[in-house]
């Protein structure tokens, strides 16, 4: 297996995959025009709610994590070997 090139190592295929992924994103958004959603709450009725809510929730969580890291991040040798 060692030196054989995997099809995922080919930049052309990776580009193709990336385009495919973007197309799927557009597709799941567009599908909302065809599928009647059943919102539990008013906010869920906004177009593409799950898409943009998920997207921004993730960005917010990464932001929160980076903020916490400023305070609590330490080198992974922090507790050393004789930590007890």
């Amino acid at each position: 297996m060692g030196t054989a090139k995997h099809w995922l190592d080919e930049p052309r295929n990776v580009r193709l995959l990336r385009r495919l992924a973007l197309a799927v994103l557009v597709l799941v958004l567009a599908a909302e025009l065809a599928v009647q959603l059943k919102p539990h709450f008013a906010v869920e009725g906004l177009f593409g709610f799950h898409a943009w809510f998920g997207f921004f929730a993730c960005i917010a969580m990464i932001g929160l994590a980076k903020g916490l890291a400023l305070l609590l991040k330490r080198p992974d040798t922090y507790y050393g070997d004789g930590d007890d």
Binding site: V24, L25, V28, L29, A31, E32, V35, L37, G48, F49, H50, A51, W52, F53, G54, F55, A57, C58
Partner: peptide
């Protein structure tokens, strides 16, 4: 659909 939107955009 809602779950796919949520996960793919995450």
């Amino acid at each position: 659909l809602a779950q796919l939107q949520l996960l793919l955009f995450s």
